[in-house]
């Protein structure tokens, strides 16, 4: 590979990550505003017009906060846990195609790469919970490890239908295979399972048991403060973005938009972002609406309902694909 090629990859990587981190920063304002208005409040109003500069104020505050480390914590693991989370979430971006022909790495195993990184990201929560050496953190970590193992299976299985229809695990190929018909129509079952499993995988309400604040103070993140806590926070939101992007790519046609009238002149990346933000809004909407699951209910849902239904979906997709041929 030439020097120019390496330089081009570096530029692509840095710009995608920088833009992504700005999105992650401002999405929390979006969340606070969305939930506030659903609850007839105004949300942040003080910093800037209607609180638009709130994320910057928050970041400065977190950055300068004292970094408290519990005296009995396992220091190396305590330090490294939030970093694992952020790295796993941000590296998933490498295979996400933002528009036709643009992704940092066009891997043949795109879906598997994202799934692999999301399973590595689970270590952040588990290790953070263990290393803090506190009851609440530890319980949060244990819950998270069981939850992530269970829902990873159903998430992987729910995407098999998409891989079968597209005949590929390359994310760009999956988007081009959806020309004229989004996979959400034949794969409605797979999509439902994927979306709910993604909620569990990113520890969002109603599956945010690892940090259940009514029982576990703040779960795995109880002992974390300042910048380290902010890294956990970033990892969660980055994971949300990646899961939404995966849902858009696998089920909602990725960057494609309606190709008529003025819509045809809108750049594809705008369509992609609109769809991703629609999903993120859905995450917030669910958070404002639903109560938290109980732990045994969570396990029952994962193992006794989602996994069998996802398997049935694979068999059904295979049958239809053979009979239609």
């Amino acid at each position: 590979m030439s020097i120019n090629g390496i330089l081009w990859i570096l530029i692509k990587t840095i710009s995608v990550v920088a833009v992504f981190l700005i999105h992650v920063m401002f999405v929390q304002l979006f969340e606070r505003k969305a939930i506030a208005h659903m609850q007839s409040r105004m949300g942040p109003m003080r910093v800037g017009w209607h609180g638009v500069l709130q994320p910057i104020a928050d970041s400065i505050k977190l950055f300068f906060k004292e970094d408290i480390i519990p005296s009995s914590a396992d220091k190396p693991i305590f330090f490294i846990a939030p970093i694992i989370g952020v790295i796993a979430a941000v590296s998933s971006l490498a295979v996400i195609p933002l528009w036709e022909g643009f992704s940092i790495a066009n891997l043949n195993i795109g879906i598997l790469y994202v799934l692999a990184l999301s399973s590595v990201g689970a270590y952040a929560v588990i290790l953070g919970g263990w290393a803090s050496n506190s009851k609440y953190s530890f319980l949060g970590g244990l819950r998270s490890s069981a939850q992530v193992i269970s829902y990873e299976i159903s998430m992987g299985l729910s995407l098999v239908g998409v891989m079968m229809l597209a005949g590929s695990t390359n994310l760009s190929d999956i988007v081009s295979a959806q020309e004229g018909r989004w996979f959400v129509v034949p794969q409605i079952l797979g999509f439902a399972i994927f979306f709910i499993s993604a909620l569990a995988e990113t520890n969002r309400v109603p599956f945010d048991l690892p940090e259940a604040e009514t029982e576990l103070v703040s779960g795995f993140a109880t002992e974390y403060s300042g910048m380290r806590w902010a890294l956990f926070f970033m990892a969660e939101y980055a994971g949300m973005f990646v899961m939404s992007a995966l849902a858009v790519i696998c089920f909602f046609g990725g960057w494609s938009g309606p190709g008529f009238w003025i819509f045809a002149s809108v750049p594809p990346v705008i369509w992609f972002l609109i769809k991703v933000y629609a999903f993120i809004f859905l995450y917030f909407w669910i958070r404002a609406t639903l109560p938290r699951y109980r732990y045994d209910q969570l396990m029952r849902l994962g193992w006794k309902i989602f996994i069998p239904v996802a398997l049935a979906n694979i068999v059904l997709t295979g049958l239809v694909k053979i009979l239609w041929k």
Partner: peptide, 9 residues
């Protein structure tokens, strides 16, 4: 993602 998480668990 799976076996080592079980070990850890």
């Amino acid at each position: 993602g799976a076996i080592l998480v079980l070990f850890l668990f």
